[in-house]
Design a protein around this nucleic acid. Sequence first.
DNA 1: TTATTAACTTTGTATTACAAAGTACTTTTT
DNA 2: AAAAAGTACTTTGTAATACAAAGTTAATAA
Lengths: 99, 99
Amino acid sequence: MKNPIENLNKVFESRIRLGVMSALMVNEEMNFNDLKQLLEVTDGNLATHLNMLEENSYIKVHKGFIGKKTNTTYSVTKAGEKSFKNHLNALEKMIHNIE
Amino acid sequence: MKNPIENLNKVFESRIRLGVMSALMVNEEMNFNDLKQLLEVTDGNLATHLNMLEENSYIKVHKGFIGKKTNTTYSVTKAGEKSFKNHLNALEKMIHNIE
DNA sequence: TTATTAACTTTGTATTACAAAGTACTTTTT
DNA sequence: AAAAAGTACTTTGTAATACAAAGTTAATAA
């Protein structure tokens, strides 16, 4: 038997970062508030996780406006997409080994 | 869009506990050393994670012998199986939403 | 009798998670 | 014009986790 977790990515161990990535894979881009409401987290907590994803270059931030209101959006980078898919693959292998 | 992480189980957020459960779903029972080698973790670390799984009644411990040598084995409980499958389902839904 | 193995527990440190409050800037409401 | 509210944070503080390393106990093998 082979180590079932060796290809899992530490960064995606967190439920919230998993949720952010998952949402951004489906949505192209989302802003702070949408993510906050979707994942039901506090500002500070979300900001921390977004920071960690950005520091790993898995997402990128775009500060813009809607009319005159600030609107910060987040989207996955190429690297983020690659790493996340890799992680999902590892999860899938683990799951299929079981079912 | 619905919160993609609301059905994920906090206990299974950890890579190592995920690995333990995954191994025990496939193997019926495994002992301390087999798990340790499979998951490539230190004694203390593994013991802690096994404890947490046991406290949640997701695994049960059986202290036995092979000949005269002690042999502690671990296996998933019904509750553990149910909760873990639930978690995997939530993961699968998340993944399929993406791919 | 010394060394080794199994399965831990204890100790200590570093990292992480999270909530809550604070901040800066703008916009809407009164 | 003043007050309230919204956006997107940062800061602060605390509690929980993760993990390695060393210590422990009891048995067995050399």
